[in-house]
Amino acid sequence: MAIQKGDFIKLNYTGRFEDGRIFDTTDEELAKQEEIFNPRGLYGGDVVIVGAGHTIEGLDEDLEGKEAGYSGTVSIPPEKAFGPSNPKLVETVSITKLPDRNVHPGMPVEIDGRRGVVSRVIGRRVTVDYNSPLAGKTVTYEYAIEKLLEDDVEKIQGLLALYTGIRDMEVEIADGVAKINVPTGLTFNQRWLMAKNRVASELFKYAGLKEVQLIEKLTAEAEVPAPAEPEVKAEPEAEEEPSESQE
């Protein structure tokens, strides 16, 4: 059966730059070998909804029409990958702005809380690129569609894992209502607080559910983190233009 928009699939992939360097993979051993392993990452394949924006546009489009078990490679230009490089995020500053004056092209730096990479050094002037390292790059993805998910519980667990990094959360479904038992650790997790409404919306749209119940349980033994102290600044600061970034 051909993969269509709205299908839940399990996807394994490896992303490379044009020079062959790997920047992302679902293969844990390969990530360690390439020194890009993230101990908080979830390896072994992602469950994604085709057409829901869970992958970059070029890869998402290439999935359509394929079948479970397919494996292949796709080359993706910047406009359908991580976007073009923004010239407004390339700035030239005095070398005195840097704590380390022994700078060179390719050196990562942080200036006024913004992270960038030195692209050029001329005398005492340094050009810093604050774009994402992935911006403006043509990338290649080797990928395999491991399976097309049919079971509703498996779909929900896969989507939850994509957003939380936790596999096999406890889920029950009856009469279009999904009951999701949220682990205590997620109750105070900022990533989860921001993602849970989107998770519910996608389950309504793509899994045909009419209600999602998020059940959060606290016990006497559970450690409840103290509320964070508000940050106090001596004087207001203008917000910097955020740079693009990837996980």
Rank of each mutant, 00 (worst) to 15 (best):
M1D: 04
Q4Y: 05
Q4H: 09
F8P: 01
I9P: 01
K10H: 00
N12V: 00
Y13E: 01
Y13N: 00
E18Q: 01
E18I: 00
D19Q: 00
F23Y: 05
T26D: 07
E29S: 05
E29N: 05
A31L: 07
Q33S: 15
E34R: 11
I36Y: 08
N38W: 07
G44V: 14
G45S: 11
G45F: 08
D46C: 07
V47G: 02
V50I: 08
G51A: 04
E57G: 05
G58T: 09
E64N: 08
K66I: 00
A68N: 02
V74C: 07
S75Y: 10
I76H: 05
I76K: 02
A81W: 04
F82Y: 13
G83N: 13
L89H: 14
V90M: 10
E91G: 11
S94K: 14
S94G: 15
S94L: 12
I95D: 06
R101P: 15
R101H: 15
R101Q: 15
V103G: 06
H104V: 00
D112I: 06
G113D: 09
R115E: 08
G116K: 10
V117R: 10
R124Q: 12
R125G: 12
T127G: 07
V128P: 09
K137R: 11
Y143V: 07
I145K: 01
L148E: 12
E154C: 08
E154S: 11
E154G: 06
T164Y: 11
G165P: 09
M169T: 09
E172L: 13
E172T: 15
G176H: 13
V177S: 02
T184D: 06
T184A: 13
L186C: 05
L193A: 14
A195R: 10
K196W: 14
K196C: 07
N197A: 15
V199F: 05
S201M: 08
E202Q: 08
L203N: 03
K205H: 03
K205N: 06
A207W: 01
L209P: 07
E211I: 13
V212G: 09
Q213M: 11
Q213Y: 13
E221C: 13
P225F: 03
P225N: 06
P230L: 01
V232I: 14
A234L: 11
E235K: 15
P236F: 07
E239N: 04
E240S: 00
E241K: 04
E241R: 06
E241W: 02
